[in-house]
């Protein structure tokens, strides 16, 4: 537990001490600020429609930010060697990094909410809608970061690209549904599960099944990360 805490603190300190963490958060905030201006200038859209579009785009930001976070962290070979030479258990390493990731994701959700906050202050949506959207963004980021960690544990730094490709394929699969035989159409339509669960939440509906989906994917990915790191424990 102490080792996991030390790893979490050090990961966050390295991320923000070197400026990369602030840079990622700044990029997310900038994109959201542009969205905020566009929302303010566009009188044709309803508040709810603008919010749904904004949260959808913020979801992309969470995914890209999460992948960048994992890539930055995975570059630090010194940290990995120190953990191995310090006899830190694999579970503690994974738990520590996960805690740091969750901390960063929480901050990323906060900077992704200017438009929803703007809409909420105008009275167009309720606090519950805002919370649901935030939960959805957190869930999307959680899935991205844990999948990327699992891929890196197996493939090294290239795992970030593999995770990005997987998330991209999941996003694009439903678009191809209209162009394939009926037999596989249903499968492709459902192949974007991350986004379909975010869609429910960004409409302001907090469904336990959506939250359970994000948590289940994250748990499986964490288990794969532990297994992958154990396999790579005896290095080459």
């Amino acid at each position: 537990m102490r080792a996991a805490g030390a790893i979490a603190r050090r990961e966050l300190a390295a991320l923000f001490g070197e400026g990369a963490g602030w840079l990622l958060l700044g990029a997310l905030a900038l994109v959201q600020a542009i969205h905020g201006v566009a929302f303010a200038l566009d009188e044709r859209r309803t508040a709810e429609a603008a919010l749904a579009i904004d949260l959808h785009h913020a979801g992309y930001g969470m995914e890209i930010g999460a992948l960048a976070l994992v890539a930055l962290s995975a570059r630090d070979a010194h940290a990995a060697l120190l953990w191995r030479t310090s006899a830190v258990r694999t579970g503690a390493v994974v738990a520590g990094r996960l805690a740091a990731d969750l901390g960063w994701l929480a901050l990323a959700v906060l900077v992704s909410l200017p438009v929803p906050l703007l809409v909420a202050t105008s009275g167009a949506i309720g606090t519950g809608h805002l919370v649901a959207g935030a939960l959805g963004l957190f869930g999307v980021g959680l899935v991205a970061v844990t999948l990327a960690r699992a891929a890196v544990a197996r493939l090294g730094l290239g795992g970030v690209l593999a995770a990005g490709a997987l998330l991209g394929a999941l996003e694009l699969a439903p678009l191809a549904a209209d162009h394939v035989p009926a037999g596989v159409r249903g499968v492709l339509s459902e192949a974007g599960p991350v986004w379909s669960h975010l869609d429910t939440l960004r409409r302001g509906v907090v469904d336990g099944a959506d939250l359970a989906f994000f948590a289940a994917i994250a748990l499986v990915a964490v288990a794969l990360t532990v297994a992958g790191q154990e396999e790579r424990r005896w290095g080459h």
Binding site: R2, A3, A6, A14, G17, H78, S86, V88
Partner: peptide, 17 residues
Amino acid sequence: HERMRVGAFLEHVAALR
């Protein structure tokens, strides 16, 4: 960890241990 201070780094390693 080159960006850390000596004392903080050693404390970090002690916590890892």
